[in-house]
Amino acid sequence: MSIDWVTVLAQIANFLVLVWLLKRFLYKPILNGIDSREAEIAAQMSEAARAQQKAAAAEADFVAQKQQLLAGQAALVEQVRQKAEQQRDALLTEAREKLEQERQDTLAHLSRERERFTTELYKASAETLYQLAGRALHDLADERLEEHIALHVVSQLTPLSEELASAADNAEEAVATTHAPLPEGARQEVKAALQALVPGLPLRFATDDSQSPGLVLRIGSTQLDWTVDSYTDELVGLLEERLASGESGRMRDHGE
């Protein structure tokens, strides 16, 4: 056991070389790599922290937007609901008004129908009455009736004196036509009454089978009828006038 000083020096030199080699190829690369990796990790961590902060901010923003959206949605739903209710009320009101209008129209239509039916009924009744009256008068008409009518004419001429006088100016004669021949007494009375009103105008009596029972007096172009037909026509006229006035009054009573 001895120390070889040449070997000692060689080993010192070897050791120093080894220190340099390991410093060059081991320690520096490894430690620098660790340092750079640590720096990179630190940078990544800080980047991750920034990304996390950004994500947190984005999340907060998203939550706020979501809440805002939800609030807006609720308001929108409420608005739509109110609008729907208003529209429903409007539709209901419109439907009610329409129904009321239709009801009023139906009532008016019914009223008009009833009025028309009543009018038709009255007209039919009047027509029937007219026919019955005419038929009854025709059936009952005879010389006596025409005589009575002639005597009645005598009393009716006086109010017509002016018309008769003007008609007689252009006439040569007056003609009294009956369905059947008048009795002589009646003829004289009619003649006397006419002469009293229109003196000098000759009166001729004639018969016409087609004429309605009664007396028709023609002076020139003027004709005065006192026949069954003229009476029934007058009756019809009165009835129609009466119906026209009676219908409206009756309808008003119903309306009230």
Partner: peptide, 11 residues
């Protein structure tokens, strides 16, 4: 080797 250990100790 004592030379090596001595060298290291000297170092």
């Amino acid at each position: 080797s004592l030379s090596t250990t001595a060298a290291l100790a000297l170092a």
